[in-house]
Amino acid sequence: MSRTQWSDYKWRLVHVAPQPPALHMALDEVLTDEVAARRRPPTLRIWEWSASCVVIGRFQSLRNEVDADAARRHGIQVVRRISGGGAMFIEPGNTITYSLYAPDSLVAGMSFQEAYEFMDAWVIDALQGLGIDAWYQPLNDIASTAGKIGGAAQTRRGGAVLHHVTMAYDIDTTKMLQVLRIGREKLSDKATQSAAKRVDPLRSQTGMPRAEVIERMLESFRKAHGLAFGKLEPAELARAQELAASKFSTEAWTGIVP
């Protein structure tokens, strides 16, 4: 497969009103498949959340990662995404989450590590433009001198690559640590032993409103690769709603690795 370039595509932006967690999971599957089928141009989607949740990775154990009682107590849903990687704790307005959907020829011949770095180069530029000393930290982190900012995950399906990232904008670390089980082994080779100190969010680093950080990110993407406003097609939304109900809200999927 020969490599394609960002500039070979007319990138579309999808940034719509807040949606529930299971629908976000479903939209990632549907939009990846639509790009794979060449029915949709490559797309950048910015997520807005309508509810708090924990999103666990495709290969994580539900029981090992989430304190189900604490999640229930705080009214936090638990959903599983289609990509690997670690659990994230989401409260509306506290993260900046985005997905990129592209033909996998864009990362043809690259190692995983190269592909992660390549897909996020524009966001590293944006963060640096905001005065943050940010870099891509293999395997899949966006890091800064002040601490970790976010994490990425990638998966490939049927000729398309999905690359999505969650960055902390603001974070209730106490609540996060009640809901997520973060073992000592996980922290064993990190510079700091405190999970609370591992994340340093964008709000404290920039002093900017979340919407403004997103606007600066979009400017960075537009400048690097071009970006036109797009929308969700009714058929895409319908299929995602169907999948949200039949797959991503079910115990069979969320507990697929119990």
Binding site: R58, G84, V257
Partner: peptide, 15 residues
């Protein structure tokens, strides 16, 4: 046996 973690595998059925 259940193997799990925050790693990446393709295809996901490999787990």
């Amino acid at each position: 046996v259940w193997i799990s973690g925050d790693f990446f595998l393709e295809p996901d059925s490999a787990l």
